[in-house]
Each structure stands twice: as structure tokens, then as C-alpha cells.
Amino acid sequence: MATNEKRDIPGTYLFDSKMAKKGYGLNKMCYSFNNQEARDEFNADPDAYCDKFNLTVAQKKAIKEKDIIAMLREGGSIYYLAKYAGLLKLNMQDIGALQTGMSVEEFKDMLVKNGRGEV
């Protein structure tokens, strides 16, 4: 406690300097989704839009497959990924389910249990 020493926290991708550099193009693309025109442009041709932001092959694959964990591994920051999720009409429970391999209902149940302190 009380040190900021690096440590492994399973299931957690710390958005640090290394990831911020790696994920820059991906995050910049997702940040652009604040703009309706950008969302329309992405929807019209996702591949071309990914190329516009020079996404890496791995990042493009993750976007195409809607694989949140892969996006995180490729340097995605959750606040921008949330904008991509919004574009896909997914909420935070959908995103949670996708990442944990649960159904949305299972994920919601887990939140309720966690909220009660039953863990």
C-alpha cells in the first residue's frame, strides 16, 4: 500500500504511457465519434475510416470484431472506446458482458451482488 509501484492486476489494462502511445490512433478515431458526421462516415465505410486514422492491423481487427479486450490490449482508453460502444448502441452492461464472457443478465446480477457486498 501507499506505493505506486507497478503491479499486475489480473483483468486490468492500465492506461499508462506505453498504452497511450500504442493506442493513439485508435483513441483518436474513437474521440472523433463525438461528432455525428464522423459517426456517419464510419458507418458508411468502417475500413476506410480506420485507415484515415492509421489504425494498426490488430486495432482494425479488434474494431471489426467488436472485441473490447483486444482494443484494450492495443492501447484503447475506455472513455474513447465508450464512444465507439455508443455508436454500436451498446451500454456499459453490454460492454461489461462482452469483456467478462457473461451474458448481459449474468453481468447485471454480478453487479447487484457486488453492490450488496456479497463477494
Binding site: 492486476i9 489480473p10 483483468g11 486490468t12 489494462y13 473490447i68 479486450i69 484494450l72 484503447g76 475506455i78 472506446l81 465508450a82 456499459m92 460492454i95 461489461g96 469483456q99 467478462t100 464472457g101 453481468f107 454480478m110 453487479l111 457486488n114 453492490g115 450488496r116 457486498g117
Partner: peptide, 14 residues
């Protein structure tokens, strides 16, 4: 709260 990663969904009430 945690939104990202396989650990998404943890809450620590205590």
C-alpha cells in the same frame, strides 16, 4: 468501479 478489462464490473461496497 471498473469499466474495462476482464475484471469489469467489480464494486467494493465495504
Amino acid at each position: 468501479h471498473q469499466l474495462d478489462g476482464e475484471r469489469a464490473g467489480i464494486i467494493n461496497r465495504e
